[in-house]
């Protein structure tokens, strides 16, 4: 039971952070605070992806040692050749084609790649959102969404009244 809880504690912490980001996006009226909440949410999604790609006992996905034999040069000097490399070559590490048997343990590189690009795209889209907020501020004079809604409502009512007046005048 304890093992089960410990294995999932990280997921739960990340989900908790995610929900705080969602709450900020939901509850605040200020548009800039909303954008910050959105970027918090996005960062936390990245945390979750990377958490899923963790391999226990693994290192960063950069091949080293016997997994990256230098096969362009002359064979490595005898003191460099460890038992592990011998084992790989004996098992046909290179000979049996593309699929090498890994000696060291690495974390999964795929979530890293996906999240790396997602972070950069995230900041680009965040700045598009902020540019829209700046334009909204210039048009309405405020960035509180309830005030913006009020102004919109007033404008729409005024337009309706004007249209009705014009229709009445045309009928008369």
């Amino acid at each position: 039971m304890l093992e089960f809880l410990l294995e999932r504690a990280n997921y739960w912490a990340v989900i908790g952070l995610m929900m705080i980001g969602l709450y900020i996006t939901f509850a605040s009226q200020n548009l800039i605070k909303r954008m910050v909440g959105l970027s918090l949410f996005q960062t936390t999604i990245c945390l979750f992806y990377v958490t899923l790609g963790v391999v226990s006992g693994g290192t960063a996905p950069i091949l080293f040692g016997a997994d990256a034999p230098d096969h362009h040069e002359a064979p490595p000097s005898p003191e460099e050749v460890h038992g592990a490399l011998d084992a790989v070559l004996a098992a046909g590490g290179e000979a049996h084609g593309r699929y090498a048997d890994l000696v060291n343990t690495y974390s999964n590189p795929l979530p890293h790649v996906l999240m790396l690009t997602a972070i950069v795209v995230g900041v680009a889209t965040l700045s598009v959102g902020l540019a829209l907020v700046v334009r909204i501020r210039e048009a309405y004079g405020t960035i509180e969404s309830d005030e913006i809604r009020e102004i919109d409502l007033k404008t729409a009512l005024a337009q309706h009244a004007e249209a009705e007046k014009a229709a009445n005048e045309a009928a008369a």
């Binding site: 093992e3 226990s56 090498a100 999964n108």
Partner: peptide, 27 residues
């Protein structure tokens, strides 16, 4: 509750294409 545990090397995420990349990359 249904997700594989943290750091499980045999989970679908870690045994699929991600592991294949690690294997074939050097070649």
């Amino acid at each position: 509750v249904d997700l594989p545990g943290l750091g499980d090397p045999n989970s679908p995420v870690n045994s699929g294409v991600g592991y294949t990349y690690l294997q074939i990359n050097w070649h």
